[in-house]
């Protein structure tokens, strides 16, 4: 069975590569008709993907020499898609949670760093200067008293 040059091969390749998250971040804009698009872009994107994958599955079935072979293609693609879905769902949750935590930690530390750099360090340096001047004055007074 020729796999790579027909629609079934294209579907299978596509679902197998869904796990690849290192693809370029370049996107393609799809204009949504005003009368058909949901307000939420994430929902619109999901529905568009469902429609596109279903259209591709449709072509796979219509091009398959038999219903039996079409079913084999769809089963194979479904297994790969379900596997990719669960792996990517976990990865997305894990990476987003970690990014949220990292951002929170970085924000908290940045505030503390700013507080230290802009308030504590200048105050400490001012105090140290004042102590040194005071020590100088006291030593001078002690010296004068001794003379």
């Amino acid at each position: 069975m020729e796999r790579k040059n027909d629609t079934a091969g294209r579907l299978e390749d596509l679902v197998l590569t869904l796990r690849d998250t290192e693809v370029p971040a370049e996107t393609h804009p799809v204009h949504m008709p005003d009368d058909a698009s949901p307000a939420d872009p994430a929902e619109a994107r999901f529905l568009l993907y469902v429609g596109l994958f279903d259209a591709l599955a449709d072509r796979v079935l219509s091009e398959a020499p038999s219903e039996e072979e079409g079913e084999v293609h769809l089963r194979r693609a479904l297994a790969a898609a379900m596997s990719a879905d669960s792996v990517l769902k976990f990865e997305r949750h894990e990476r987003q949670t970690r990014a949220d935590q990292n951002e929170l930690m970085a924000r908290m530390r940045s505030r503390e760093i700013q507080m230290t750099e802009r308030w504590m360090l200048p105050r400490l340096r001012e105090d140290i200067d004042a102590y040194r001047r005071r020590i100088e004055g006291l030593r001078r007074a002690l010296l004068e008293e001794a003379e």
Binding site: V15, T21, V23, E71, L78, M82, D85
Partner: peptide, 26 residues
Amino acid sequence: LERLRRSLAVAAARAAVHRFELVRQR
């Protein structure tokens, strides 16, 4: 076949949306 088609479209779309978010938020 009808059930497979629907399941496939939804599972693949979910995976594609997860991948979209992972790639765009990289």
